[in-house]
Design a protein around this nucleic acid. Structure first.
Lengths: 243, 243
DNA sequence: GTGGGGCGTTTTGCCATCGTAACGACAATT
DNA sequence: AATTGTCGTTACGATGGCAAAACGCCCCAC
């Protein structure tokens, strides 16, 4: 039996029973490889699947009628993707692989049956979706009420802290795998202005760059500039049912 | 036994069994009245409760270090509020009553036990939290990539459509109960610019106003200007376990 | 090795959008 | 009559968008 990437993900938060683990593993019959740049889900197309991302990076986004793009979320290994298909039969957002990727798709009805049988898994998913909700409110405050520089700073810190959850190799530098245009589309700026801000922050010694890797030098200062809060540090899982 | 406002809310989406209804009702021992302007929850304070809003309107918001405010969400009767307290023991956002209000608080652990015993209720809550997530991605696209006028238009339409879900008296006009400053703090604009846009839209015959009530005249045109999608119309609840 | 072609980054000048500050009108409270 | 809250209006200026071009880099073909 192949290991379940969903089980691995959930086990990062809370220990799972063997029954839970094997039930999770049964969901995943065909991990799927996707090439960099390929579309995993297209907005408005019928969807019945959700995914867990095993390897690589994925983004979700929408294109507005004027052609501009808003990137909604960048996903990292272990993330749970596409849960909107439980309530909308047409995808509200597109999914594209930012790198070569391995995703584990499940059918939405198989997920439902799992949640019926394993209430602790259901509770954990409910918790994580609340954490995602708070992450999105943080982004909203950033988009609505902070300057371009603050948005870049908090975006970099967010990516950094989320990478660190699963990737222990990340200390103070990381490979973003995003173009400046993609950064701009994430935080509501043009690529030109992203570039201005990044160079400015580099000149000020806040960050540095070499061949695609970004190094954060003054975390505390960056957090201040970006009005950034690291929510991962303060999560509290004792709401969950006892194992 | 008092009726449960939570049960009423959920029953709007799907029929509930008597067992489910009475379990929901047991959660609510003390509906609480709150005066207009009073704080229901303060950011960073310890919280162990969630709420369903029975009467009136509530907003959630954060204040940034420079004093500016981002309003995250306006809640209407029937909405489920403050679920972040399941995962963060300190509130990530403040809640304030916009009008005189009646809220039904539950303890977060009582909610957990309910979800364990009633998987269908758990599934329904999971669904609704996914719908909320999509609503927030729509707002993010609006904040990040649309003009001031588009934001005002989509904000008005969103408020309108959400009011209509529960309030059958709403046809084409409604009472927003928000100052222009509050509108601005919701959509990332200053009150001055909100005022500019509203007066412009009034001149163009898109909306009209009289003593606090707003009337929407050209819905289709407003949807186009705001790049607005009414997600309520396309929800699909057949993912839920059979009753 | 040389000459593209594609892709992302860097840079510039111009200017629209939107924020800031400040004040008056008006209604509702007290 | 004084106070408070909201809306309306203006002048001014900063932030950040837009368009366009050059630059650097990598890969590939010849």
């Amino acid at each position: 039996m192949a290991t379940s990437c969903f089980a691995e993900r959930l086990a990062k938060h809370v220990p799972l029973s063997d029954a839970e683990k094997s039930a999770l593993a049964r969901l995943e019959e065909n991990p799927r490889k996707v090439k960099r740049g390929a579309m995993i889900q297209r907005v408005n197309e019928t969807v019945t699947e959700l995914f867990v991302l095993r390897e690589g990076r994925v983004m979700s986004f929408v294109i507005l009628p004027d052609g501009s793009r808003q990137i909604l979320r960048v996903y990292f290994p272990g993330d749970f993707i596409g849960s909107a298909s439980t309530i909308y039969s047409k995808a509200p957002e597109s999914l594209v692989a930012l790198t070569d990727v391995v995703v584990c798709p499940f059918d939405k009805h198989a997920l439902r049956r799992l949640l019926e049988d394993y209430p602790r898994v259901a509770a954990l998913l409910f918790l994580l979706s609340n954490a995602e909700r708070v992450a999105m409110t943080d982004r909203m405050a950033s988009l609505g009420r902070t300057s371009a520089k603050a948005r870049v700073a908090s975006f970099l810190l967010d990516m950094f802290d989320r990478l660190r959850v699963t990737d222990d190799g990340v200390i103070d530098s990381f490979d973003l795998k995003l173009t400046q245009e993609e950064i701009g589309d994430s935080i509501g700026l043009t690529s030109v202005h992203v570039n201005r801000m990044i160079r400015q922050m580099e000149q000020e010694g806040l960050i540095s760059r070499s061949n695609g890797r970004i190094t954060l030098h003054q975390m505390a200062r960056l957090e201040e500039i970006g009005h950034y809060i690291n929510r991962h540090k303060v999560m509290d899982l004792d709401w969950l049912p006892v194992g």
